[in-house]
Amino acid sequence: MRGYLNEQILIYQIKRGNTDSFAPLYDYYVQKIYRFIYLKVPSAHDAEDLTAETFLKTWQYIKDARVIGNLQAVIYKIARNVVVDFYRKRGTVVAESLEDNDIVVADRVDLTLEEKMTLKTDMVVVEKALRELKDTYREIITLFYLNDLTLKEIAKIVDRSPGAVRVMLHRGIKALKGKLKQK
């Protein structure tokens, strides 16, 4: 787990012009941000584009902002805004196939072919059900179960109280169960 102090040191160095200090932040957050965005947009290619845009805007934000108390919240908020802008500009977008996670499964050298096929099927089913949820539920479930954030951390990102986040998490899981039962 990155330390608050380490992060503040990196922020300070970036503000002073050391772009190399951005690399550790990128390395720490890139997979989580990508996953967060991926489940909000139609395709992996869109997710890649928007992830890159998120990091670029984060870098610009770090350079311009006076104080950054919670970088994690900042990055996720930027990611959310980037996705909103994406839909505003592109209008209705047709979702591509969920076969993108072929790449993910193919990388698993520890699994047998049968295990890979089962994994892929499971992932497709859950991902499809998750994508059918209301965006708020999907977002909170992603942050909590996939990205391992606490309720308090999620609350700072979505600008709600931890209690409200907990309620939405319960509702989201209930809705997800319903979707999975239908499949």
Partner: peptide, 22 residues
């Protein structure tokens, strides 16, 4: 089931290319 989706990660090639580009 949800945690299987933690395997959703960007392509390694894209991840390093993007970092280098940025």
């Amino acid at each position: 089931q949800l945690q299987t989706l933690q395997r959703i990660t960007p392509r390694t090639q894209w991840q390093s290319s993007c970092k280098e580009l940025l």
